[in-house]
Structure formats: structure tokens, C-alpha cells
């Protein structure tokens, strides 16, 4: 079960990595070698995270994105023996580069809901404004109280 999932994700990650490597080279002027190494490492971390998550889902159900991000964090953290290698080789991969392909896939997937999005248009703008404003004010309030209590201001 876990093995089949591993092979399946390996195949999908492989074809997706090719797009990401291409966009890295074209859009962000990376060298071919750096791009392949950087994206390759990120994909290995991703594949390991996905597989661990699949295995762990027998015991506890947690989002696989959490395993992936945690694995990346551990490998790059000060306690990791290979942190320099991981950080240097992936720092070349532009932070936003993987996301253009992601946007294209997401767009294709959302294509079947364009009508319902268009209908909600202005409502979404209002809602987004409230969400940003709420996050900002909430943080400002907590920060104000904590800074005052700790005597920083």
C-alpha cells in the first residue's frame, strides 16, 4: 500500500519537477545544474514527507504538508549535519519559482468554477479586505498588550 503510493507519487513528482526546473531556468535565470540539484533535493524531501505521512496515517491523520515542511525544517536546522548542503543547494531555487506551474494547475482545476467565482466577485474583495484587516488588528492588539506588559514600550 505504502509502496504503491510511493511509486505513484514518484512518477507525479518527476513530471512536475521537470516543469519547475524549466521555469527556474527560464524565469529566474538559474543554471541548469543548480536548478536540477535544488529542485531534486526539494522533491526528495517532498517524496519522503509524503511517504512518511502515508505510513503515519495508519496511526494519526495529519496533513502531509506538515510532514514535508517539518522534514525540510529539521534538515536545515542548526542540529542537522547536512544543513549547509541543504540550504546552499536549495537557496538557488527561487522561492516563487515552483508556484507558476502550481498556479497553472490550480487555474486549470478552478476552470470548472469560473462562473461561480465571477458571481461572487465583489463579495470576495470585501471579504479579503476584512480578513487582512482582521489579521493585522488582532496582531497589533496582542503586540500592544504584550509589549506594554513586558515594559518594552
Amino acid at each position: 500500500m505504502v509502496r504503491k503510493y510511493f511509486v505513484q507519487q514518484l512518477g507525479l513528482l518527476f513530471i512536475v519537477s521537470i516543469i519547475i526546473i524549466l521555469t527556474n531556468i527560464i524565469g529566474y535565470n538559474m543554471t541548469i545544474k543548480n536548478s536540477i540539484i535544488g529542485i531534486g533535493i526539494l522533491s526528495i524531501i517532498a517524496l519522503t514527507g509524503l511517504t512518511v505521512s502515508k505510513f503515519m496515517s495508519k496511526f494519526v491523520k495529519l496533513p502531509s504538508m506538515m510532514y514535508i515542511s517539518l522534514l525540510g525544517l529539521l534538515l536545515a536546522s542548526p542540529i542537522s549535519p547536512i544543513k549547509d548542503f541543504i540550504i546552499n543547494s536549495t537557496s538557488q531555487a527561487a522561492f516563487l519559482a515552483p508556484t507558476t506551474a502550481l498556479g497553472a494547475f490550480a487555474g486549470i482545476s478552478l476552470g470548472k468554477d469560473i462562473k461561480s467565482f465571477a458571481k461572487m466577485g465583489w463579495k470576495l474583495v470585501i471579504l479579503t479586505i476584512f480578513i487582512i484587516a482582521g489579521t493585522f488588528l488582532g496582531s497589533a492588539l496582542v503586540a500592544q498588550v504584550v509589549l506594554r506588559l513586558t515594559g518594552a514600550i
Binding site: I19, M65, I68, S69, A76, A93
Partner: peptide, 12 residues
Amino acid sequence: VALAPFMAKMGV
């Protein structure tokens, strides 16, 4: 699938 390497990058 495309999100996975991106999350790895955020983790790193």
C-alpha cells in the same frame, strides 16, 4: 504534487 516541493522549500 506541485505544492509538495514548495512546502519543502518553505520548511528549509
